[in-house]
Amino acid sequence: MQSALAVLFPPQCISCGEPTDADFGLCGPCWRATPFITGLVCDRCGASLPGEDEGRAEYCDDCLTLARPWQRGRAAMLYTDNGRKLVLALKHGDRLDLARPASDWLLRAARPIVTPGMLAVPVPLHWTRLLKRRFNQSAELSKALARKAGLDHCPDLLQRARRTESQDGRDRDGRFRNVAGAIRLHPRRGNLVRDRDILLIDDVMTSGATLAVAADACLGAGAASVSVLVLARVAKDA
């Protein structure tokens, strides 16, 4: 049956639709056009760093300057070229099928920071945006990642206390002001976060403002630590 289906519906690239060797994969050209982050990275935000990985934590200039509330962080790819195309397809194109391959890319990036007993938690959407979009792309990513990594998952641990304006076009300070106090712990989920290591998952990191507010909410509820994981990281010179 599977052989017959493969003949009738051969695997296609999830990005361009060209034939591939396996389902839910990228063809060679699209793989090469996707800016996966490899090599030495900042241990706190996942940004690429020059030099070789010598097995010790290194930090970018931003993370040496800013007081990040989370402990460690990773990103699967840069938010440019085919990376941006894939994120936007998931976020605005109803391409929920992309959560499956994205979870593989996320897990590969997250292996150095995942610990046993971690609780995977998505950055929440405000209910009005959730109603309009019909799904939270970060929750789809966290669900798929948690299943693959064998982690507990709580999709509603965090809530948006208020709807914020778009972060597009704002500088770093403006982004932090825009989301200040916008995320809180679900009033009935406090027992899940206390003394737990939390893995916050989002689709894109730019300044880290939204992740910082979410991390503060977890730490304020008694989390032992918070780490962050994103599908794509905006390049710092972008």
Rank of each mutant, 00 (worst) to 15 (best):
T115C: 15
T115L: 14
P116T: 08
P116H: 13
G117V: 11
G117D: 09
G117H: 09
M118T: 08
L119H: 02
P122S: 02
V123D: 03
V123Y: 02
V123A: 00
P124Y: 06
H126L: 13
H126W: 06
H126M: 12
W127R: 15
T128K: 15
L130V: 09
L130A: 15
K132P: 11
R133L: 04
R134Q: 15
R134L: 10
F135E: 12
N136E: 11
N136K: 09
S138Y: 05
S138L: 13
S138V: 01
A139L: 12
A139M: 09
A139Y: 03
L141T: 05
L141M: 15
A146I: 01
K148Q: 13
K148V: 06
K148L: 11
A149N: 05
A149W: 14
H153N: 07
H153T: 07
C154E: 08
C154D: 01
D156K: 09
D156R: 10
L157M: 12
L157N: 01
Q159M: 10
Q159I: 08
R160N: 05
A161I: 05
R162G: 12
R163E: 14
R163G: 15
T164Y: 01
Q167N: 10
D168Y: 10
G169K: 03
D171T: 14
D171V: 02
D171E: 06
R172G: 11
R172W: 10
G174D: 05
F176L: 07
F176C: 05
F176T: 06
F176M: 14
R177Q: 10
R177I: 07
N178M: 10
N178R: 05
A180I: 09
G181P: 02
G181C: 13
A182Q: 11
I183M: 10
I183C: 01
I183D: 00
R184P: 08
R184A: 08
R184S: 14
L185Q: 02
L185M: 14
H186R: 11
P187M: 13
P187G: 15
R189T: 06
G190W: 13
G190K: 12
N191E: 12
N191Y: 10
L192V: 08
V193L: 07
V193I: 15
R194I: 11
R194T: 08
D195A: 12
R196A: 00
D197W: 10
I198R: 01
I198Q: 01
L199N: 04
D203G: 02
D203N: 04
D203F: 06
V204W: 00
M205D: 04
T206W: 00
G208M: 12
T210N: 07
T210R: 00
T210P: 02
L211S: 05
L211V: 09
L211I: 11
A212H: 07
V213C: 06
V213K: 01
V213N: 00
A215H: 08
A217D: 00
C218W: 00
